[in-house]
Design a protein around this nucleic acid. Structure first.
Lengths: 139, 139
DNA sequence: TGACAAGTTTAGAATTATTATTATATTAAA
DNA sequence: TTTAATATAATAATAATTCTAAACTTGTCA
């Protein structure tokens, strides 16, 4: 937890118990949570936790470059820790989101058509391997 | 207009005056409109036009592969005619969205980590050339 | 230690894009 | 023309997010 504290300070965010728990949840969770998923999980720990705090914190983290906001269709924002550049795959059937690796050259583009690039997002949609597996079982 | 009619039929969509005008607007407009922008524009022509019709039509067009839904941050869906695969750049300052060309190899990926790809989206965000220009003028 | 200022959290109201519902109108088929 | 199917319209409902204002923490300095 001290490490997380230090990490936040480095990013210019003063640590609070809420922020630390949110950060820890993001580190542990593998599922690209929505704000409401984060709230649901952490309010078991901090029963007074408000949704506004989640939204405030996530916006702050986003500004400070700690997370990126994925918008992979579906009208809700999902959050992802900025560990290394990667792309995402969302299954249209089960809704699960996977991290996928692509040619890193794309993330190196800093200027395109004269516009200055700050952030690059790539996502694929389709049918995931698990949903394919289920189809076969049903034959 | 007859061409548009034919085009819709080919895509399995029975044409109606609303659908045709929406399609024509998408062809003419250069600005990746939201559903509400489309409604605002076309209701000048068809004053009784309902928002529901826009949403229904856009969902239909999307299912039939006529348009894709861009979600470029900002919690609103924007629509884009599927003419050829391309990427998008959104300026964080002025909000404008540009079409940009990238290496077409990325759009050829049909399988990634065992998942079947149906659609690929790439978008950049940053500061556009126009907003850079404005800065210089103010020096 | 105590008091103040700045920053954080909370709860609930407000906003906004989108979907659901249901009645009416239009089109296509028989 | 009658009937069934499809499309549109108006309104209500939903749900994610932001706004607002009050209460709470924290760190700083006398």
């Amino acid at each position: 937890m001290d490490k997380l504290c230090e990490f936040l300070r480095e990013k210019g965010v003063s640590p609070s118990i809420q922020r630390l728990k949110i950060l820890r949840y993001l580190k542990d969770s593998e599922n690209h949570p929505t704000a409401l998923m984060i709230h649901h999980e952490i309010s078991r720990d901090i029963p007074t936790l408000s949704k506004t705090t989640i939204y405030n914190t996530m916006n702050l983290f986003s500004e400070k470059g700690i997370v990126s906001e994925l918008c992979v269709g579906e009208g809700e924002v999902r959050y992802d820790l900025n560990l290394y550049p990667h792309a995402h795959f969302r299954c249209a059937e089960c809704g699960k989101i996977y991290d996928v690796k692509i040619d890193p050259e794309l993330f190196k583009i800093k200027k395109i058509n004269g516009n200055q690039v700050v952030h690059t997002a790539v996502y694929f949609t389709g049918k995931c391997r698990e949903c394919f597996g289920k189809d076969k079982e049903n034959l």
